Simulated scan of single mutants.
Amino acid sequence: MWSWAIVIGIKKKTDFGEIILAGFLASVIDVDHFLLARSLSLKAALSLPRRPFFHCSTVIPIVVLILKLTMHLFKLKDSWCFLPWMLFISWTSHHIRDGIRHGLWMCPLGKTSPLPFWLYVITTSSLPHICSFAMYLTGTRQVMSSKHGIHIDV
């Protein structure tokens, strides 16, 4: 949530809806724990023998690109142009946070050792700014600015 809030800046009340959506997307990843456990039990979901599918970090760019392509095919690129970026930042920040304890799982390549706390802090702090700059380079910032009727700074 907070990473997306930094990306868009909170300029008006409707921005809170996007921020809540970003928080939902960051949390929905953990549904795969319950799917793999085949139970709604929190104990079962937290004591899995292996990591669930959505915790594979290489899934993020694949899902983001598929979403971007789907949006292009259905001509949703203006009104929802932010969604692939929101998904990217929500899922990436979730993976980085999980990486402190478990490392990053880069299937099929394997996994890293747990991330040092200093790397977590630097990455989490810089991710919204990197994302914002990438949105500027791809033109998403300009589309969002015209959609919102305000200039969104990088």
Rank of each mutant, 00 (worst) to 15 (best):
W2P: 12
W2G: 14
W2V: 13
W2D: 13
I6C: 15
V7A: 07
I8S: 00
G9R: 14
I10R: 14
I10L: 15
K12E: 05
K12D: 01
K13R: 10
K13A: 05
G17L: 11
G17N: 12
E18Q: 15
L21F: 09
F24D: 11
L25E: 08
A26Y: 01
S27H: 13
S27D: 13
I29G: 01
D30V: 11
D30R: 14
D30H: 15
V31P: 03
D32Q: 11
H33M: 08
H33F: 11
L36K: 15
A37E: 10
A37V: 11
A37T: 08
R38K: 05
S39V: 10
S39E: 12
L40A: 08
L42F: 15
L42A: 04
K43V: 02
S47E: 12
S47Y: 09
P49R: 11
P49Y: 03
R50W: 05
R50V: 10
H55K: 04
S57P: 13
S57K: 05
T58R: 04
T58V: 05
T58M: 13
V59A: 05
P61Y: 10
I62N: 05
I62Q: 08
I62M: 11
V63T: 00
L65P: 00
L65W: 01
I66N: 09
L69T: 13
T70V: 07
T70N: 10
T70F: 08
M71V: 06
M71Y: 12
L73Y: 14
F74S: 13
K75C: 05
K77R: 01
S79R: 10
S79Q: 11
W80S: 02
F82G: 07
L83D: 06
P84S: 01
P84L: 01
P84D: 00
W85T: 03
I89R: 04
I89L: 12
S90K: 08
S90C: 09
S90F: 06
W91F: 05
W91I: 04
T92H: 02
S93R: 03
H94N: 03
I96E: 06
I96Q: 08
D98Y: 09
G99E: 08
R101M: 13
H102T: 12
G103K: 08
L104V: 03
L104I: 09
W105K: 06
W105E: 09
M106P: 11
L109S: 08
G110I: 04
G110L: 04
K111S: 13
T112K: 00
S113I: 03
S113L: 09
P114L: 09
P114C: 06
P114N: 08
P116I: 11
F117G: 00
L119F: 15
I122F: 15
I122E: 07
I122R: 09
T123Q: 07
T123M: 12
T124S: 13
T124A: 11
S126F: 12
P128H: 08
P128M: 07
C131G: 05
S132K: 15
F133I: 01
M135G: 12
M135V: 08
M135R: 14
Y136L: 09
L137E: 14
T138R: 03
T138C: 02
G139P: 01
G139L: 02
T140P: 15
T140D: 14
T140N: 15
T140F: 10
V143P: 02
S145F: 00
K147C: 00
H148N: 13
G149V: 02
G149L: 04
H151G: 02
H151A: 06
I152C: 07
D153T: 01
